[in-house]
């Protein structure tokens, strides 16, 4: 079984706890150092086996060291994540309650953004700060946003738009999937959450690829077509910020952005209405097509 579980694993795990989120290069370096520190020149387990041993242990306390790829450049990354979104794991954060509430509002704005933009402008983000139950000042919100970026929870683009970082997608996966089941979409190739990538030209087609997944996939294909509808694939059709889905008449995914998880408690009716709205919108789209 896990007889090979030793201090090298524990050391690696302690390092992961202090890093939380790291590139694969760093992970492999940590793995080698962890063995060296224990005077083991030749690791007894390969990197994959090593992680598997750790995960077997972590599994018993609903945690995991999980791999993903950075959406912007495809870099393999690892993170120590909670696999259940219970109350206790929500405590695992160095932010205050108000700061977390602001962050949740930002997540909502990002995830529910129209036209699969999955981003929010800094102006909207700042305006949101005053809508909190315990509102925070603009300057406080500004420095908080900066901290979210520094701590690698959010990414700030050149055009001043905030989007979810890979760390947020990885670590908050459970929360995101539970709260925004209807808004999140998955990459058709790797099944991970996708907030930046490419989409099929056909409005109704569900094909969405990460940039790196797309590169890998088409490298082995003779034709550059959507695997499901066989229409020519255009890499310029993107999801994420500043895409051209709006001009193409893509559907606005939420008419009333304000009524979801953060403020959701107790108004299920409203939610139902929205769902109906969405269905109607989709039907309209189909007719257009």
């Amino acid at each position: 079984m896990t007889s090979s579980y030793a201090n090298a694993h524990r050391l690696f795990l302690q390092a992961s706890m202090s890093e939380r989120f790291f590139t694969e290069t760093k992970a492999i370096e940590m793995y080698k150092k962890a063995y060296l520190a224990n005077n083991v020149r030749r690791p007894t387990e390969t990197f994959q086996e090593f992680i598997a041993s750790i995960n077997q242990k972590l599994n018993t306390i609903d945690m995991e060291i999980r791999k993903s790829h950075d959406e912007t450049d495809g870099t393999p990354v690892w993170a120590l994540v909670n696999t259940n979104g219970d109350e206790i794991s929500k405590l695992v954060t160095e932010y205050t309650a108000v700061e977390i509430s602001y962050f949740k509002h930002l997540i909502e704005l990002i995830v529910t953004a129209d036209y699969e933009e999955f981003s929010v402008s800094s102006i909207t983000a700042l305006r949101e700060a005053s809508k909190l139950k315990t509102s925070i000042t603009k300057s406080a919100a500004e420095s908080l946003l900066q901290k979210f970026v520094e701590d690698k929870w959010l990414i700030l683009s050149k055009n001043g738009k905030y989007s979810l970082s890979q760390r947020a997608i990885l670590e908050l996966q459970v929360y995101l999937k539970e709260t925004y089941e209807d808004n999140l979409i998955e990459c058709t190739l790797c099944y991970d959450i996708i907030t930046k990538g490419q989409r099929c030209d056909v409005q109704q087609c569900k094909s969405r690829f990460h940039h790196h997944c797309s590169r890998n996939y088409f490298a082995s294909q003779t034709e550059k077509v959507c695997p499901s509808c066989k229409i020519a694939w255009k890499e310029s059709n993107v999801i994420g910020e500043d895409n051209n889905n709006k001009s193409k008449g893509g559907s606005s995914r939420r008419k009333n952005k304000r009524a979801t998880a953060v403020t959701r408690e107790g108004d299920e009716e409203e939610e139902e209405e929205e769902e109906i709205e969405e269905v109607v919108a989709e039907e309209e789209d189909e007719r257009d097509y």
Partner: peptide, 9 residues
């Protein structure tokens, strides 16, 4: 899990 969370803070 609670112990880990507390330690982090």
């Amino acid at each position: 899990r609670l112990a880990l969370a507390c330690e982090l803070r």
